[in-house]
Simulated scan of single mutants.
Amino acid sequence: MRVAAIDCGTNSVRLLIADVAGGSLTEVARRMEIVRLGEGVDSTGRLNPEAIERTRKALVGYAAEIAELGVSRVRMCATSASRDASNAEDFRGMVRSVLGVDPEVITGDQEARLSFAGALHGLNAEPPYLVLDIGGGSTEFVVGFERVDAAVSVDIGCVRMTERHLHGDPPTPAEVAAAERAITKVVDNALRKVSGHGAMTLVGLAGSVTTVAALALRLPEYDAARIHHARIPYDDVAKVTTDLLGSTVADRLDLPVMHPGRADVIGAGALILRVIMERAGKASVVASEHDILDGIAFSLA
């Protein structure tokens, strides 16, 4: 069955078109657009009309590709920003008009379970796993073996933490310290809830983690094949985090692996990853290019 999975988060909207048969998935196309749907939601509680329009334009392109490639079933999941917004119906109406399907505004728990299902695809590492999905508005913590044992979604993400704390360019030491205190408090609570300290393998998903991995690997350009399942030591994550938080947005844009839409928030994303590794006592993280999109695709089969 050829399916289309769409994940619309706080920072990006992504598409996976895949052929799914039994427990196997063959990727046909994978796309990502930074639309910053959740811009300002943390402070206003509403989706910005300009952000909805940016998302609409991305979805128009996705709809054309879905039609061209003969997709049988489509599922779109909308996560943190659309959960938090008081005008989410404006967003849902736009999606219906473009894609012909309703977006599912999934809960944090559903998001965590879909991410876990996607992350385990093709993974060869020692269980139990602690899977992290660091998004723009939230981060999901999931622990399990072949299935989920415990999951929690918390309101720390690269966009949310940047908007709350990291206002300087580069952020000041006081701003970084305030962000780290806030992140640490939430992370400690999340790790207790899912018993994350007992996991043998830490797996990190989404753009903050894969960008940090690309920088740690010193890649000359973003290379998903080299990033996927790369194991990145804590010391390398810490160095990349320090470098990012000490640089300006313009400096980050000069990095060959940096997506332009991620440059202003990657410092916060890296800090979240570093704090989680530190508080969970993990010496390394396995970066995964398989994530909630893959989980959505499997759910359609």
Rank of each mutant, 00 (worst) to 15 (best):
R36L: 05
R36Q: 12
L37P: 02
L37F: 00
D42N: 13
D42I: 13
D42R: 09
S43P: 03
S43E: 15
R46V: 00
L47I: 05
N48Q: 07
N48K: 05
P49K: 11
P49D: 04
E53L: 07
R54T: 04
L59C: 11
V60L: 14
G61A: 13
G61Q: 00
A64Q: 15
I66R: 14
I66C: 11
S72V: 07
R73Q: 14
M76G: 00
M76R: 05
C77D: 08
A78W: 12
A81D: 02
S82Q: 12
R83P: 10
D84R: 07
S86H: 08
N87T: 06
D90R: 12
R92L: 04
V95F: 04
V95I: 04
S97W: 03
V98F: 11
L99F: 00
V101C: 07
D102K: 03
V105C: 01
V105T: 04
I106K: 02
I106R: 03
G108M: 05
D109H: 04
D109P: 00
Q110T: 02
Q110H: 00
A112S: 02
A119C: 08
L120T: 01
H121L: 15
H121G: 02
L123P: 03
N124G: 04
A125T: 13
E126F: 00
P127V: 06
P127D: 10
P127E: 12
Y129K: 10
